[in-house]
Amino acid sequence: MGMQKELQAAIKAILPEVDCVIGWGSGPDPLHGAPLFMRSEDDANRFASGFFAVNNPALFLPEYKGKKVAVVVKGCDARSVGQLLSEGLIKREEVSLIGFPCQGVVDHDKVAAALGEKGEMGEVTAVLEEGDALVLTLRGETVRLNKADVTAEKCMRCQYPNAHIADTFVGEKREPVATADDFADLAVFEAMSLEERQAFWEKEMSRCIRCYACRNACPLCVCRDHCVATSRDPSWLTQADSVKDKLFFQVIHATHLAGRCTGCGECQRACPVGIPVLLLKRSLARSVEKLFAYRAGIDEGTPPLLTFTLEEPTIKERSW
C-alpha cells in the first residue's frame, strides 16, 4: 500500500494549485472502483489506486477546459491525455499529470466468467489482494482467483505501463509487459473468413441497444451532444433498430477515431451487452501504425489523417 500513500501525498501536494484532482475511489462494490473528483484533503484520503482503478480519467478533461486540473493517470490514461494534447483539445498548461507504474487492471467480464456457478459479482462482500491472487468473499465462502486470469486484455499487451507524460511520477518505473503490439487479438478474429466475420457482426450488433455507452466512455469523443449519430442535419443514421444502422454507428465511431484511438478499451468495457467494439478500432490502429508509423497518444505531431506527405511510400496504390 506504499504506492497508495505516496499517490495521496502527491495529490495533496498539488491540491492547492488546481480546481480539482481526478483519480479513483471505491465503487459500489468491492470489485469496482469509480472516478473520484478530489477538492480537499478528505477527498484525497478516499483515493484508491490499484487493480480496480479501471476508469480512464482523461474522459473528463475536455470538460475542464479553461480550468486547471490534475489527473492521476495509468499508462493508458496518459496516452489518451497525450492524444487530447496533440489535437489541441486540452491545454498542457491547464493539466497536471501524476503518473505511477500501473500493474494492470481488472476485466470484470473475466471475473464474472471465473466465478461462474459460484455466484454473481454483486454478491462479493470483500476482496483482498494477496500477491498474484485475488481473494474474494461471497456467499460466506472465499474464492481465490489468479490475478493474471482476470486482468484486462489491454494490460496483457501493455507497452506503456508508466505514464509517458507526467509532471510528477510516483514510484519506480516498471518494465513494460510487451515491447510491441502484435495485434494478436486481431489475428484470432481474422482466422474467420470474411463471411463469418460479417455474420459475427450481424449477430453481435443485433444485441446492440443503441445506448451509446461506448461513445460516452470514449475520452476522445469530444463531440458529445453534437454527435452525428443523433443529429438530423447531417442525418447519417436513421433511428431504426436495424443491424445496418447499429453497425454503421460503430463504423462512424471507429472511423472518427482512426489515427486517434489509443486503445484504452473504455468503449468495450462500457458496453452493457458485451459487444467487442474495440476490434474495429484496433484494426484501424494497426493500419495507422503500419501506414504512418503513428501510435496515437505516444507519437507527437499532427495525427496522420489531418496531414499528408506528397509521396506516401507505404501506400501501395493500385496500378490500374
Binding site: 454527435c227 452525428v228 447531417p234 447519417w236
Partner: peptide
Amino acid sequence: TCPQGAVQLSHFTDNQIL
C-alpha cells in the same frame, strides 16, 4: 473532416450526398 458535420459545404452537404 469535421466529425460532427458542423461544417457543411453548401450545395454538396452531407445530406445531399447521402
